[in-house]
Amino acid sequence: MLHLRNTGFSPSDTSQLLLQARNLGKDCTIRDCRVSTKYVEFDVSVDKSKMDDLVGKLKPIAPLDHARLVTEEHIPKEEAIQQGVSYFNDERFWEAHEVLEGVWKKCYEGEKDLVQGIILVAAALVHFQKDENSICLSVLGRASEKLSNSSGSYHGINVDLIRQKLDAIRDSGKISLFTI
């Protein structure tokens, strides 16, 4: 995963950025692109020895902020929740989704729906970052359903606030980012 600094791009630039990155980095696989207010995020498969070369080739798009090898991690539940919240609040929604999925696998009954609701919010905002707003709104609706029986605080996450934000987005039809 490569995070370039966002130097003025919006989610509507995603398709063009992905095409440009693929043209610049022909000797690797660039699967996807997402644009947050902070980063232009690329999912890449590249030999570790060629990573610096790829970063250099992508400089015409934007400078590198950071790179991270994404693998399924087996970390304690509380640490994973904190990491998921940190990723979410840094607009790294794909990574938040991935780490919280590990938490979800360790949950039972009602907690499972609550965590899945938060995962769906992150997944929805991934679609927003790809300029897929109708998909985002649809997934946010599913997230609302999963969170409908939850309230209060979950490991420091204000579930009521998330539900309020989702209601506001649904009522206005305008997607807005928020922290959890």
Score class of each variant (00 low, 15 high):
2 L>E: 12
2 L>N: 06
3 H>T: 11
4 L>N: 09
5 R>I: 13
7 T>E: 15
8 G>A: 10
9 F>M: 05
13 D>Q: 02
16 Q>E: 08
18 L>V: 03
20 Q>A: 15
20 Q>C: 03
21 A>D: 13
25 G>N: 07
26 K>Q: 14
27 D>P: 00
27 D>S: 10
29 T>F: 10
30 I>F: 11
33 C>N: 09
34 R>C: 05
36 S>A: 00
36 S>R: 04
39 Y>T: 13
40 V>G: 01
43 D>C: 13
43 D>T: 15
50 K>C: 08
51 M>E: 14
51 M>T: 14
53 D>F: 00
55 V>K: 02
55 V>P: 00
56 G>W: 10
56 G>I: 03
57 K>H: 01
59 K>T: 13
61 I>P: 01
61 I>K: 02
62 A>V: 06
63 P>Y: 09
64 L>W: 07
64 L>P: 04
65 D>M: 09
67 A>T: 09
68 R>M: 13
71 T>K: 13
71 T>S: 10
72 E>G: 00
73 E>W: 03
76 P>I: 05
77 K>Q: 07
82 Q>Y: 02
82 Q>V: 01
84 G>V: 12
89 N>Y: 06
89 N>R: 06
92 R>W: 10
93 F>S: 08
93 F>R: 07
94 W>N: 02
95 E>I: 07
97 H>D: 07
98 E>V: 13
100 L>H: 09
101 E>V: 06
105 K>E: 15
105 K>L: 15
106 K>C: 01
106 K>Y: 01
109 E>P: 00
110 G>I: 04
112 K>W: 10
114 L>C: 07
115 V>D: 03
116 Q>G: 02
116 Q>H: 12
118 I>V: 14
119 I>T: 04
121 V>K: 08
121 V>S: 08
123 A>M: 05
125 L>K: 12
127 H>N: 12
129 Q>V: 03
129 Q>E: 12
130 K>N: 12
136 C>F: 12
140 L>W: 05
144 S>A: 08
145 E>Q: 13
148 S>D: 14
148 S>T: 09
149 N>C: 01
152 G>E: 10
154 Y>H: 10
154 Y>C: 05
156 G>F: 06
156 G>D: 07
159 V>I: 15
160 D>F: 03
162 I>F: 03
165 K>I: 11
167 D>N: 12
167 D>V: 09
168 A>I: 05
169 I>R: 02
170 R>C: 03
173 G>D: 00
175 I>S: 03
177 L>R: 13
178 F>D: 04
180 I>D: 00
